[in-house]
């Protein structure tokens, strides 16, 4: 996560929130939230190196496989549940979205927007995009799915989620005009209806 992205995400989280960060990576965001916004909570991470990094930072981390669900977390037990660049790695992104809404009062999801214009341009030329945001070749990418800003709107609607804020993120800046075309990252903040 770039520093700009980290600050853009942190800006969405009210001070003092109890936060669950699904796929928390090295715990940088949680550490920032603890230090600067008096937040508490936990990260969930599968990768050994990231788990270790979280422990080093003094962030509560739980080494769990998100594909096995969120059964250890009680209903509505967090103010905010984050899925920052996690969705594209999950086998069942829809189940996880529902689980996010079950466990948290507010969900925040961020993922690479495949409809960003450089990606469209690449596809028009007949090739899968390789960009700063999606730096992998089609044959070695760890992302098991790609989706667009618009796709997520449809999925949120289908699951009865009320989107309270949605915008694009490009070079750490908020993009409110044509985010589906103009932003490399899609960000959604949602609640249960």
């Amino acid at each position: 996560m770039t520093n700009d992205t980290l600050h853009a995400m942190a800006a969405l989280i009210p001070p003092g929130s109890r936060v669950l960060d699904l796929g928390c990576g090295d715990g940088a965001l949680l550490a920032h939230l603890q230090q600067h916004k008096a937040c508490t909570g936990y990260g969930v991470e599968l990768d050994d190196t990231n788990v270790h990094a979280c422990v080093q930072r003094g962030v509560n981390v739980l080494q769990l496989n998100l594909d096995l669900g969120l059964s250890v977390f009680a209903d509505q037990s967090f103010d905010v549940v984050l899925q920052i660049d996690t969705l594209q790695h999950l086998r069942n992104a829809e189940t996880m979205l529902r689980e996010t809404a079950r466990v948290g009062r507010t969900g925040i999801v961020a993922f690479p927007n495949f409809a960003h214009w450089p990606n469209r341009w690449s596809i028009l030329q007949g090739r899968m995009p390789v960009t700063k945001r999606l730096p992998y070749q089609w044959y070695d990418t760890p992302n098991i799915r790609v989706g667009t800003f618009k796709d997520f709107e449809v999925l949120a609607e289908k699951n009865g989620l009320q989107v309270v804020d949605a915008f694009g993120l490009q070079d750490g800046q908020r993009v409110d005009v044509w985010p589906n075309l103009m932003a490399g990252t899609a960000v959604f903040k949602f609640q249960k209806h």
Binding site: R18, D48, V55, N60, S71
Partner: peptide
């Protein structure tokens, strides 16, 4: 161990959990 993690989460305790492969 996950049972214990869950019980600690229910009580909002600080807990980290490593599941070593």
């Amino acid at each position: 161990s996950r049972e214990m993690v869950q019980a600690l989460l229910d009580n909002q305790r600080d807990v980290s959990y490593a599941e070593i492969d």
